[in-house]
Design a binder for these strands. Structure first.
Lengths: 235, 235
DNA sequence: GAAATAGTGTCTATCAGACAGTATTGA
DNA sequence: TCAATACTGTCTGATAGACACTATTTC
């Protein structure tokens, strides 16, 4: 990491540690789950933690570092990735002044690779209960995870964000079920469809339907240029 | 900065630079304005920039560092302070891999000290036009400033955030005027008051009124335990 | 009383949700 | 034809905003 020193900077030894940590969420077995990795080395060796790592000189950006972590630890590419916030103070890491930039990633359960990246054995999915997870997490990761879950739940109320938890093609009943799971309440079918229709971000996949012993549902996909859309009102 | 080294960390020379930058906004002369400082040293010497600085070993946290910057550069304490997000990549600072944690602060114009901190001569207020400011800013600060303004404008639509731009005691017409300035549209008085009343975050200051040649308005202040409240609907 | 702004009441068009009805498939 | 679920139309209670009205002060 060349530093031309065209101005005064803190001495290297006085620079804080900088990491990225990613909360990776998916829907499996009808529940929201987070991917955690078991730490192999101190500090907090043996504890479960959010996938993360130090910023390296060859990272191109913070988001690039988050994508690298996502690929290394979970074998996942190009999902929904959003910056959550940064957490830093003098005490959160025994190795010194440390800050982490936290990200939230959402992926569809059909895009989970059979292997979870290089350290497959040390990574596994944990169901979210309330705003936390069964094991005690390393560092301040419980706080970060809670913030990530809060952010996602809040956005479900007024955005199209849950489409990122579904496969590329899905039916409107599928989508409504995801909203209902995340919000933990029933939605009226008619009102739900009015909301989805008015923001106009889906397009039908013609000629394809889903098999069952009843009227099949239309399949839809998000329009090519889609970015998360905000509803006028809460959903 | 002691580092007990209880685990592997990047070599000091490979650690990125870490700063905080604060977008400080107020309402002066009926317009939204941002406090900028002129850089004395390279890189970008002579350019205007957001007040900011490196994380120092004696900072207690990221937010603590932001408050230190606020005090040093603007002589301001305990305003509304919110983390905006982090920006970091290999190229944004010629001195090396650099990341900054950006904050947004709001203050009432009556709380602006006559002196703007230690470097009073080098700091001044600039009116916001659209999502930017007249001078070319240092680093990627124009992008950060635009994000800060976007965040504040968005929150005005559905939160009580604008109270932080008013003195401790204010009238409802005062508050409505702030909303109208920030949203750049007229609001209906009756509907506005219904919204304010239903979230119930203000209390009347009895016996005090404002002098004018007409019916005086009731003075209000935010309730002691107030945190920014979200409206059910957009305002 | 006039002027000016603070504050409140009422009316109505709109609309979100409840609910019932129709559509389409397999068995 | 029945069962099951997809999908749509209609009705109604709630309400946001338009607007008019009353209140309170100085001159």
């Amino acid at each position: 990491m060349k530093q031309p020193q065209t101005g005064p900077v803190p001495a290297p030894a006085e620079r804080p540690l900088l990491t990225v940590d990613v909360t990776i969420l998916t829907l499996r077995d009808d529940s929201l789950q987070a991917l955690l990795v078991r730490r192999a080395e101190p500090p907090h060796a043996g504890r479960w933690a959010l996938p993360g790592g130090f910023i390296r000189p060859d990272d191109i950006s913070l988001e690039g570092a988050a994508r690298r972590v996502l690929l290394d630890k979970a074998g996942i590419e190009t999902p929904y990735l959003e910056q959550l916030g940064s957490y830093g103070d003098a005490k959160r890491d025994p190795r010194g002044w440390s800050a982490t930039v936290a990200y939230v990633a959402l992926i569809a359960s059909d895009r989970l690779e059979p292997r979870h990246g290089r350290n497959a054995d040390a990574a596994s999915w944990w169901p979210i209960v309330g705003t936390s997870v069964a094991p005690t997490l390393a560092f301040d990761h419980a706080r970060i995870l809670a913030a990530a879950i809060g952010r996602v739940r809040a956005k479900v109320e007024y955005t199209t964000l849950p489409v990122h938890l579904l496969p590329a093609k899905f039916t409107l009943p599928d989508l409504q079920r995801v909203y209902e799971q995340l919000l933990d309440r029933k939605l009226d079918k008619s009102a739900f469809r009015k909301r989805i229709a008015e923001v106009d971000f889906l397009e039908p996949v013609e000629g394809e339907r889903r098999a069952a012993s009843n009227r099949p549902a239309q399949l839809w996909r998000v329009k090519p240029d889609h970015r998360t859309v905000f509803f006028d009102r809460t959903i």
